[in-house]
């Protein structure tokens, strides 16, 4: 059988070897205490900066009579609250309608829920076949 080696295979195996090595190296590094301390210190600095910038931009927006992120988020929250209440009312109305029509459960129609797992179905079929055969034997 002709099986010439693809030169790109070398490249492929090098890539996956490098991937494994880099991953294992960085995982070792990430498990160290120094890594945790450094990344969380950097995160703290980033958060402090974010808070400082956020405060300044809110003041500037206020100066220009513009809504801040908090204002817009607040509006969103109020809309969400209205939506939530509407959903609650909808659910209550559905429950009331169901109670009024005397239906506790309104099951959706669909295929019959009679499916048996293949093994059980095969057993059932075999049993059915054997019970069908019996009267024929008796008759003979």
């Amino acid at each position: 059988m002709n099986k010439a080696k693809d030169p790109a295979d070398l490249w492929r195996s090098w890539v996956s070897k490098m991937e494994r090595e880099i991953d294992s190296m960085s995982q070792k590094l990430m498990k160290t205490d120094e890594f945790a301390r450094t990344t969380h210190t950097l995160n703290d600095i980033r958060m402090s900066l974010r808070e400082a910038v956020g405060g300044v931009s809110t003041k500037n927006l206020e100066l220009f009579n513009m809504p801040s992120k908090e204002d817009v988020t607040g509006l969103g929250d109020r809309l969400a609250g209205i939506e939530r209440r509407l959903t609650m009312i909808e659910r209550m109305l559905t429950t009331l309608a169901e109670q009024k029509s005397g239906e506790g459960k309104t099951a959706r129609s669909g295929p019959p829920r009679t499916k048996m797992p293949p093994k059980k179905a095969a057993k059932k079929a075999a049993k059915k076949a054997s019970t069908k055969k019996k009267p024929a034997k008796d008759a003979s």
Partner: peptide, 21 residues
Amino acid sequence: MDLFQSFSHKKYFDVDRLVDS
């Protein structure tokens, strides 16, 4: 979950500050 443990190191990760912010 060793890497997640490291990312959220109890000694250094201020989860309350992050969530509150």
